[in-house]
Design a protein around this nucleic acid. Structure first.
Lengths: 140, 140
DNA sequence: CAAAATTGTAAGGCATGCCTAACTATTTGT
DNA sequence: ACAAATAGTTAGGCATGCCTTACAATTTTG
């Protein structure tokens, strides 16, 4: 009953959730293409996610996410978006760099740090002049 | 000739560097105790670090760090300290939480993000009232 | 509706990084 | 110096997560 997902499985779940936003039927082959890994590896991962009751996977019928899986996916996605936004909007980093780093950090950061960054970012948004001054510095 | 270290090897190197600050002779068994892993695992890791010319390891004689290893170690340690300080001093998080998260993030963050955080933290230090106001908020 | 294309699975491999158990080498202490 | 304690290594195992190759199932399409 260990609910802890590896970084890898979190990535799969996150992607599945994102793909389900736009299409009602997600196939394993799509995931393989997006993550640039083999169909076989995806197949293995999907079995693991299904074992953990995070998705329902029935081969050619496509992938469905369970309520539990959705909850977990949303958590990861929120972390992802929070860090991406912090890096891009608050710190003024390049979008791609912001995304790349958020993608890694989302899997290792604790809830406390995540929450605090969230708060801090909100605080910064309400003090845009402070951030603007930073961005105008010797940076860029 | 791939110079990329795994998170695990970076941790070993970082610890070796830190231990060499206070004692001139570091033994594998010390590392095993500090990282709470088996002597066997440490032995394997040290062979890998030596293969990459980051340390000089001759069994019972102890571990020495090479200039190359020192350079790499200092980089990781700087990232570690930067994130720890950002979390603890700037965001006002608990020291232990700050350390734990820095320990993970230091291995996955890119140089660009690291540098920017460094700059930002410096900027915040010069605007302590802004940070104090944040810390006094509904947080804590 | 059957051949072709697509999609999915199984088997066997590889690397990392950890483990334990058993062994060897070195150091320490009397 | 030699027995005991400490330190290090080797061998074999396990889990994760990726790979390729080959095969099976399904869907598409002529």
């Amino acid at each position: 009953m260990k609910n802890n997902l590896s970084a890898s499985l979190e990535d799969y779940l996150e992607l599945i959730c994102n793909l389900l936003e736009t299409s009602s039927c997600v196939k394993a082959v799509e995931i393989a293409k997006k993550l640039n890994i083999s169909r076989a590896s995806v197949s293995e991962a999907l079995v693991k996610l299904a074992d953990k009751n995070l998705i329902i996977y029935e081969g050619h019928k496509g992938i469905t996410i369970t309520p539990e899986g959705l909850k977990k996916a949303k958590e990861v996605i929120l972390k992802h978006n929070t860090f991406t936004s912090f890096f891009e909007n608050t710190l003024g980093l390049d979008k791609v760099i912001a995304e790349d780093n958020a993608c890694k950090i989302e899997h290792v950061v604790s809830d406390e740090v995540f929450e605090k960054i969230r708060e801090f970012q909100l605080y910064c948004e309400n003090n845009q002049d402070f951030i603007d001054k930073f961005k105008k510095g010797k940076n860029n």
